[in-house]
Write a protein that binds this DNA or RNA. Structure first.
Lengths: 244, 244
DNA sequence: CCCTTCTATGAATCGTGCT
DNA sequence: CAGCACGATTCATAGAAGG
C-alpha cells in the first residue's frame, strides 16, 4: 500500500501523478494541496491582444520560463487535463476532504471551472500576497498575488478541532527559501496544511521541491507526494528527510 | 453635455446607468471604476430574491442600511447584463482607458468573462484585503478579500506620469466609513483612482454612496456618477459636495 | 496614556423538514 | 428524491468604554 504510516509519515514517488493516484484506494486522503503547472505563459488575453511584432519582441526578451514538464497546454486542454486529475483526486479523497490548488490570475477562472467540473464543491479563494511582485509597471496594478482555489469533496462536516484559517497569506518569498521556479514560502504552506486535521494524510500530486510535504511534516500531518522530474524529486526527498 | 468641467469637477445623476451612459458621446471617459451588484447571495433563486439586507446582514444587527436594487439576477443573466453595461462603458471610454470592477470570490470568474466578452482587455486582478471582519468559520479559510478585476479599452499606451500601483490593498473598513451595505474604504478607493491620469474623468455607473467620487475629487480627478436609489443618491450628493 | 474589558459586527452557511 | 424554504448559528477582531 502506497500510504504513509505512523513510523514513516511520508512517501514520495517518482512518476506520473495520474498513474500513482490510480494505484491508491478510494477515500484514503484527508486533504489535497498542490501547485500544478499553470500553463499561463502565452495564452493570456493581454498577450493575445498584442501585435505579432510585440509578441516576437516579447519572446526575444529574457523571460523566466518554467523549466518543468507539462506547462505547454492551451487553456482548453489544460482544463480537460485538470478535470482528469482532479476527478481522480476526488476519488481518493475522503468525504468532506478539502482541496487547495494554487493558480495565478490568468488561470484563476479556469481553475474554478476545473474544480467544479471535476465534482468538487468550490468553497472559496485564499490569497497569497507576495508583497512584491513581478516586474512593476507604471500605470498598472502590480501582480503581486497568487491564488489558492479551495473546495471540498461534498459537504464539509463540522471540524471543531481546526481553528479559523486566514484568507490572505501575506509573505515575501526569500530566494533562500525558493527551491523550485514556482516555489512557495514554507510559512504559507504551513498555514495552508492546517486545513487538514492533525495527523491526516495530505496528497500533493505535483510535489515539485516538496514544500507542501515539508510543511505537512512540520505541522504534524502525514504526506504523500508525486514528482515526475528526477531533479526535483531528489531535492524534495532531501527536504522531506530533513523535515522528518 | 453631461460631463464635469474644471469649474464643477463632478456630476451625479439619479437614474438608470445604461440610459445615462447612452446620453454620453464616444470616448469621453478616462477611467471606469465601479462596484456593481454582485448577485452572489445564496445558492437558490429564492435566496437571491431576498432583499439585500436579508442576504448580507445577519440577524441581530442594530445598524439599518437601505436596501439596494438589482441584486437578484441569476448567474447567466448577470453575465448578460454586465456585457450590456460594460459594452456601453467601452464605447464612452477613451482608447486605452482602464476599467476596474469590484467583485467577490463567487462572481470573480463571471466578471472576468463579462469584461472580456464585452470587448475590454482583461489585464489583471487587484485584491482588497479586508484584513478581518469577515465571518470566521472553523476549519475554513476566511473569506476576507474582495477583488478588483481590471482591464483596458484596447492597448494601454505608456503612462509614465502614473507610478506603480499596488496589487493588494490592505485596509480595514471602519463602521464610520461605511455609508452603504457594501461600502468600500475611502483609502482603497483613493488608491484605485490613481489608475486614472490626474485631471481625468472617472465614470462610476453604480455610484452607491459615492465613495468612488469622493476619492476621485480628493485625488484631483473629475467624476461622473449615476445612482438609482434616492437614499444613496442623497448620501452621495452630500459626500461629493463635502469632498469638493 | 496604557491596559483591560466589553460589545457590536460581518457582500452567509448549514442542516432540516416540507412540498 | 430533488429542490426549495426556513431558522439557527458563528467567533475573531476593531473600536469603544472603562479603570
Amino acid at each position: 500500500m502506497n500510504l504513509p504510516t505512523p513510523e514513516k509519515p511520508w512517501i514520495l514517488e517518482r512518476g506520473d501523478s495520474l498513474d500513482f493516484m490510480r494505484s491508491l484506494p478510494d477515500s484514503c486522503i484527508d486533504a489535497v494541496i498542490t501547485d500544478p503547472p499553470y500553463c499561463s505563459g502565452g495564452t493570456s488575453s493581454a498577450d493575445r491582444a498584442k501585435t505579432t511584432t510585440q509578441k516576437y519582441v516579447q519572446s526575444g526578451v529574457k523571460v523566466v520560463r518554467p523549466d518543468f514538464a507539462g506547462d505547454n497546454r492551451d487553456q482548453r486542454s489544460w482544463l480537460v487535463w485538470c478535470d482528469i486529475w482532479m476527478r481522480e483526486a476526488l476519488r481518493v479523497a475522503k468525504p468532506g476532504a478539502p482541496i487547495c490548488v494554487f493558480t495565478d490570475w490568468r488561470q484563476l477562472p479556469s481553475t474554478t471551472d476545473a474544480i467544479q467540473v471535476s465534482g468538487w464543491i468550490w468553497r472559496g479563494i485564499a490569497v497569497w500576497d507576495k508583497t512584491e511582485g513581478a516586474r512593476p509597471q507604471r500605470g498598472r496594478f502590480r501582480n503581486q498575488a497568487e491564488y489558492i482555489v479551495w473546495g471540498s469533496s461534498g459537504q464539509m462536516a463540522a471540524r471543531d478541532e481546526i481553528g479559523v484559517l486566514p484568507g490572505v497569506f501575506r509573505h515575501y518569498l526569500r530566494q533562500a527559501d525558493k527551491h523550485h521556479i514556482t516555489g512557495k514560502p514554507t510559512e504559507v504552506m504551513r498555514g495552508l496544511v492546517q486545513i487538514c486535521p492533525a495527523g491526516g494524510v495530505i496528497l500533493d500530486p505535483f510535489a515539485g521541491s516538496g514544500t507542501t510535504g515539508a510543511a505537512a511534516l512540520a505541522e504534524g500531518r502525514r504526506f504523500v507526494g508525486v514528482e515526475r522530474e528526477q531533479t526535483y524529486f531528489d531535492i524534495a526527498t532531501a527536504r522531506l528527510k530533513a523535515a522528518w
